[in-house]
């Protein structure tokens, strides 16, 4: 059986597109709106989220047979918080310049619904490797959407990409300041979700539970 058809492969690939956490599961919307006006911030946020989601899912899965049902969500938050703090400490110690840029957002990864959503929906019921792949896929799927929004917002709003001014763009493009402001994030997210759900993603089978 190929990796693509294995439980791990399915968990990883489904989250990239078919069950994308942002435009299919509508998770992680707050940060999608907040960090996507600059591509660099988005990249760094995505890196932190991929790390935290994948390892939280792995740990939740490893502990699933020992975790009392009544406190499972507390356990998930505790695990997610620990990994996010690890990310924060590591960035602060080894990449202080990066920490200056995304420091305010790293702590907020704890509250990202994708981490809890995947832990609760998948990791607490499945083996470690597929759970890790599920978290990894969710993180990458989230990143794909965020980066596509961030590229449009930064280029159209600031006339730059990753902080570098795009040559000759100002000759024919007048910067849309609204795109780098909060309403711009709503417009872009709605546009991406509409495009993805209308033209790209096949409709889910609604023929009833199997």
């Amino acid at each position: 059986m190929s990796f693509k058809n294995s439980a791990s492969g399915t968990a990883l690939l489904k989250n990239l597109w078919q069950d994308n956490p942002v435009f299919r599961q509508v998770l992680g919307i707050c940060s999608t709106l907040a960090v996507t006006n600059l591509v660099l911030n988005t990249l760094l946020m995505c890196g932190g989220l991929i790390f935290a989601t994948a390892l939280t899912s792995l740990t939740v899965s490893l502990l699933r047979d020992y975790t009392p049902k009544q406190v499972r969500m507390m356990v998930q938050v505790l695990i997610a918080a620990a990994y996010v703090i690890v990310v924060d400490i590591a960035i602060r110690a080894f990449f202080p310049e990066v920490h200056k840029v995304i420091g305010p957002y790293v702590g907020l990864i704890i509250t990202n619904c994708i981490i809890m959503g995947r832990a609760e929906a998948y990791a607490c019921k499945n083996p470690p490797l597929p759970s890790f792949c599920d978290g990894l896929g969710a993180g990458i799927g989230y990143s794909l959407v965020l980066l596509s929004i961030a590229v449009v917002r930064e280029v159209a709003g600031f006339g730059t990409l990753l902080g570098f001014t795009l040559p000759r763009l100002d000759l024919w493009w007048h910067q849309w300041t609204i795109l780098v402001m909060p309403p711009g994030a709503f417009f872009m997210l709605a546009l991406v979700a509409w495009l993805a759900n209308s033209f790209v993603v096949k409709p889910a089978n609604t023929g009833g539970a199997k």
Binding site: V71, V75, L78, F94, P96
Partner: peptide
Amino acid sequence: FMVGLAALFGTAVTGLNLATRPIV
């Protein structure tokens, strides 16, 4: 379970924080 888990993760995070404090 909760106390053990909190102690485990708390210790790990505190240890990492202490280890990197001089660098920070």
